[in-house]
Design a binder for these strands. Structure first.
Length: 171
DNA sequence: GGGACGATTGAA
DNA sequence: TCAATCGTCCCA
C-alpha cells in the first residue's frame, strides 16, 4: 500500500507547478482513533518566496514560518484569527521559502473548516508528508480541469500581489 | 510589557 | 456587517 504516496520529486519543484498539480490528489488523514479520512483536494493557493508580499516569508525567517525555508514535502501550519489552523504544504528545496495553502477538499470548503474536520493543529508543524503515518497525499491518477483567481484575504499585500492569479480551483 | 493584526467563519 | 479569539511580531 501507499505506492501512490507523493514523494520528494513531487514536492521539491516550483510552487507554481506543485499548487495546480495538487488538485485532484487525495489527502489522507489517520485520526488518533484509527479512522482514516480520504478527501480530494479541490482548492489551493500558492505563496512564493521573499518577493511575494502576501507570503509570510516576505518578512524574513521567523519562528512561525521557518519551516517554509526547509525542504519541500513538510507541513506548515499556523493559527489565524485566534481560532483556525491553516494547512500548508512546503514546496521547492531548502532555502527557497514556498508553500501551498490547502483551501478546500471534497465535502469541506474553506481552509479553517477542513483543518477542523481533519483535526489538524500545531502538532503537525513540520510533519513530513513523505514519511508520516498520520497524514500524507496520494496520486490517484486524476488531473481535473481548473480555473485561477486572485488569492483570498491578502489585500494588505498591495494591488500587484493581491491580484496575481495564484488561487487554483477545480472546475 | 503592551498593542495591533491576521492566507476565517458563521451568525445578525 | 461584525464579533470571536490568541499567537506572533514589532516597538518601547
Amino acid at each position: 500500500m501507499n505506492q501512490n504516496r507523493l514523494k520528494a520529486d513531487f514536492y521539491q519543484r516550483d510552487v507554481l507547478l506543485v499548487a495546480p498539480d495538487l488538485l485532484g490528489k487525495q489527502l489522507v488523514r489517520v485520526l488518533p482513533n484509527g479512522i482514516k479520512l480520504n478527501h480530494l483536494i479541490t482548492e489551493v493557493e500558492a505563496y512564493k518566496g521573499i518577493d511575494d508580499l502576501a507570503c509570510h516569508a516576505s518578512k524574513g525567517k521567523t519562528e512561525r514560518n521557518k519551516v517554509m525555508f526547509m525542504q519541500g514535502g513538510l507541513v506548515y501550519v499556523y493559527l489565524i484569527y485566534g481560532m483556525y489552523w491553516m494547512l500548508n504544504v512546503v514546496t521547492s528545496v531548502e532555502g527557497v521559502p514556498e508553500a501551498v495553502l490547502i483551501r478546500g477538499i471534497t465535502d469541506y470548503s474553506g481552509p479553517g473548516r477542513l483543518t477542523k474536520h481533519l483535526q489538524i493543529d500545531k502538532s503537525f508543524y513540520a510533519e513530513n508528508l513523505m514519511e508520516s503515518s498520520r497524514i500524507w497525499i496520494e496520486d490517484i491518477g486524476f488531473s481535473p480541469e481548473f480555473t485561477t483567481t486572485p488569492r483570498i484575504g491578502v489585500d494588505y499585500a498591495g494591488s500587484y500581489w493581491a491580484n496575481i492569479p495564484w488561487r487554483f480551483i477545480v472546475e
